[in-house]
Every structure is written in structure tokens, then in C-alpha cells.
């Protein structure tokens, strides 16, 4: 807007009517340090000279400033100072003044926001607490969602349990398989050991026979076929060679062994497939017993429709405790759910379900039990004709 060559005239030089800004500027100069005050007069004299030169151009401005310059517009002064090039002391001091104002304004603003935050948070907290209180006491939405989440949780738990069961079954099968393998390996080792043992035994026997023959009966053991082997020493050697070369005798043994070698395989297969089957049976049994126990824990036995007994009301019954008892009209039909009290003891008050679906307790001497299914139809016909 303004250049170094043509500085803008100061407001108090061009217009005497702006008294308030002038006072502000004087207070500004009072706040300056002595050093800045020393430098000020020289600059002012320069500026006044330049202002007098360029006065005709900028003269119309003060009138506009005057017309719009209301009482509170003193803060336009720092802006004018800041934009012009009066020098460092002038430039700095209006800004410092401005910063003081700004600081104070900021402080007020901060105070306002502080109070606002405080009250706001207080009211917000109070409202939140009230809402929480309502949620906890209300047995409607909160309870139902809670139950739903519990159901979901239990479902996830069941699925996880099932997955773990499958995994453990797999691990058990795996382990049993490797156990079988190791057992078979051990049997193989045993067979080898026995074979080598008997091989050694045969050699020992053979050596003893040789010894007996060499010492003419003083050491070793006499061979069974002494009379024969006396004449034919070669036959024994042939037998031994046959045994070692797995000749005719061994081939017969092998055939029989191959025949019975299906047994362990069958046993192994049975173990592999039968073990999970037995495990499954066991688990289902456990589950059924668990469900029965759980339902009994709720105070109601599992209802078996085929064994369900029906009864007919002999008299009207007005419940004294409507929460636990159920109303009866004479001739009403009902299903007897339980002849026991919630603790499982025999009771004179039975739990029934009426035709309306209401479940409650009634005195046993107000009803008569209908014995058979045919009789129910008969009674139904009776009630219909009446």
C-alpha cells in the first residue's frame, strides 16, 4: 500500500480529531526504552518532512477514518503502524502494544472457554450418570440384549469346545497310530532278536555235537539221531545250510506267518475307527446327561409328550398367589407338568399347563387325572357336545 519513498502521514499529524489514537500512541512512546526514545526524534523529523511533501495525496483519508472511526477503533492504530515503514522502533513498539492487548484478550477468552468447559463437562457427566442409572434399573432393553449377548457367548463357547474336541480326537488318533507303529516295530525287533538267539542256539548245538564227536563222548551232548548221523555227517551240515538259506522248512513257516499277518492289521484298523466311534458315543452320552441335569436344575423335568398326563378341573379355582398359581374353570383340561415342588419333593400342589398356555400350581384335589389317550378324545367329545 505504502512505499519507502512516500510514507503515510501519522494520524495525529493529518487529523486532530482522532484524539484517542493519539493518546494511545503517546502511551506507546512512554513504554519505550530510553534507547528507542533517543532514536525516535530523528525519525519523526524525517517523517514529518516527508509527510508534509506527500500531504495533498493522502488528505482525503482522515475524513473517511473520522466518519467510520468509532470510539473503540483504537486498535486499528497498531495495524497502520505495522504496515508502514517508520523504522524498527516504531515497527516493534506498536506490535508489542498489540501483543499486550492480544494477550489480555486471549486471557479473557481462555477464561471463558475454561468456564464453559467446566460447566459443560459437569452437566455432561451428570447426564451420563443419569442415563447409566436408568439403563441398569430398566429390565427391558438392557436385560434382553444382555441375554442375547450371553447366548452368543455360550454359542461361541460351544463351537470352540467342539473344535477343541475334534482337535483332541485327531491328536489322540494320531498318537494311537504312532503307538501302533512303534508296537509293530518293537515286535519286529523282538522277532529279530529271537531269530538271532535261536540261530546262535542252533550253532551252539551244532558245535556241541561236533565237540562230542571229537572227544568221543566225553564232552558235549549226544545228537538225537546218533545212529544215523554217525554214518552221514554231511546230512547235519546240509540241514544247517538249509536252515541258513531259508529252504523248505522256512518257506513253510513263512506261508503260515503270511496267513495270520492280517490279524494285527485288522486289529489296528478296528482301533483306528472304533476308538473315535466309542469316544463319540461317550461324548453324546455325557451331553444328554448334562442336558437332563441342566433342565432339572431349572426345576422342570424334561417333558416327554408320550408320558404326559392330562387332567380335568372338577371345580373353579381362584389363585391366591397369581404369580405362582393358575386359575381354573370347571371342566378345563390341562397337562400335568410336575407333581413335585420346585425342590423335587412330592407335593399336594401340582404344576400344570392350562389350555391357554398358562403354567402354574394348583391343588391336586381340584382336578381329576384322565387315564388314557382314548379317554381324552372321549372327554373332548363330551365337552364339545355340552
Amino acid at each position: 500500500m505504502s512505499s519507502t519513498a512516500v510514507p503515510r502521514p501519522k494520524p495525529w499529524e493529518t487529523s486532530a480529531s482522532l484524539e484517542e489514537p493519539q493518546r494511545n500512541a503517546q502511551s506507546l512512546s512512554a513504554m519505550m526504552t530510553s534507547n528507542q526514545q533517543d532514536s525516535r526524534p530523528t525519525e519523526e523529523s524525517n517523517n514529518s518532512n516527508s509527510a508534509s511533501e506527500s500531504a495533498p495525496e493522502v488528505l482525503p483519508r482522515p475524513a473517511a477514518l473520522n466518519s467510520s472511526g468509532t470510539y473503540g477503533e483504537s486498535n486499528t492504530i497498531p495495524g497502520i503502524y505495522g504496515n508502514s515503514n517508520y523504522g524498527i522502533p516504531y515497527d516493534n513498539n506498536p506490535y508489542s502494544m498489540n501483543s499486550i492487548y492480544g494477550n489480555s484478550i486471549g486471557r479473557y477468552g481462555y477464561g471463558g472457554s475454561y468456564y464453559g468447559n467446566n460447566y459443560g463437562s459437569f452437566y455432561g457427566g451428570g447426564y451420563g450418570a443419569g442415563a447409566g442409572y436408568g439403563m441398569n434399573n430398566g429390565s427391558g432393553l438392557g436385560e434382553s440384549t444382555k441375554a442375547t449377548f450371553q447366548l452368543i457367548e455360550s454359542l461361541i463357547g460351544a463351537v470352540t469346545g467342539f473344535a477343541q474336541m475334534l482337535e483332541s480326537t485327531y491328536m489322540a488318533t494320531h498318537n494311537s497310530f504312532f503307538t501302533m507303529i512303534s508296537v509293530a516295530e518293537q515286535f519286529g525287533n523282538l522277532k529279530e532278536m529271537l531269530g538271532s538267539f535261536f540261530g546262535i542256539f542252533a550253532i551252539m548245538k551244532f558245535l556241541k555235537k561236533i565237540l562230542y564227536r571229537a572227544t568221543k563222548g566225553r564232552l558235549g551232548i549226544p545228537p538225537k539221531n546218533f545212529a544215523e548221523s554217525e554214518g552221514s555227517k554231511n546230512k547235519l551240515i546240509e540241514d544247517f545250510q538249509k536252515f541258513n538259506d531259508s529252504g523248505t522248512i522256512n518257506s513253510n513257516e513263512k506261508a503260515t506267518r503270511r496267513k495270520i499277518s492280517w490279524k494285527p492289521l485288522l486289529f489296528f484298523l478296528m482301533a483306528v475307527f472304533g476308538f473315535p466311534y466309542l469316544l463319540n458315543k461317550f461324548i453324546t452320552k455325557l451331553q444328554t446327561s448334562g442336558t437332563i441335569r441342566a433342565s432339572q436344575g431349572n426345576g422342570s423335568e424334561p417333558i416327554d409328550p408320550s408320558k404326559l398326563e392330562f387332567a380335568r378341573a372338577l371345580y373353579d379355582f381362584v389363585p391366591e398367589n397369581p404369580e405362582m398359581e393358575v386359575a381354573l374353570k370347571k371342566g378345563d383340561l390341562m397337562a400335568i407338568l410336575s407333581k413335585k415342588d420346585p425342590l423335587g419333593r412330592d407335593s399336594d400342589w401340582w404344576k400344570v399347563r392350562t389350555k391357554n398356555g398358562n403354567i402354574g400350581y394348583i391343588p391336586y384335589n381340584y382336578i381329576e387325572i384322565i387315564k388314557r389317550r382314548k379317554k381324552i378324545e372321549h372327554v373332548d367329545d363330551e365337552t364339545r357336545t355340552h
Binding site: 372338577l314 371345580y315 373353579d316 379355582f317 391366591e320 398367589n321 405362582m324 398359581e325 415342588d341 420346585p342 425342590l343 407335593s347 399336594d348 400342589w349 400350581y361 391343588p363 391336586y364 384335589n365 381340584y366
Partner: peptide
């Protein structure tokens, strides 16, 4: 005409 109901068990008593 209806008979007196038998004594109530504990869980049916209102008191």
C-alpha cells in the same frame, strides 16, 4: 361345594 385346598407348600405362600 369345592373342597378346601390342601395346605400350601412353602414356595406358594405369599407371606
Amino acid at each position: 361345594r369345592p373342597p378346601r385346598p390342601p395346605p400350601k407348600p412353602l414356595h406358594l405362600r405369599t407371606e
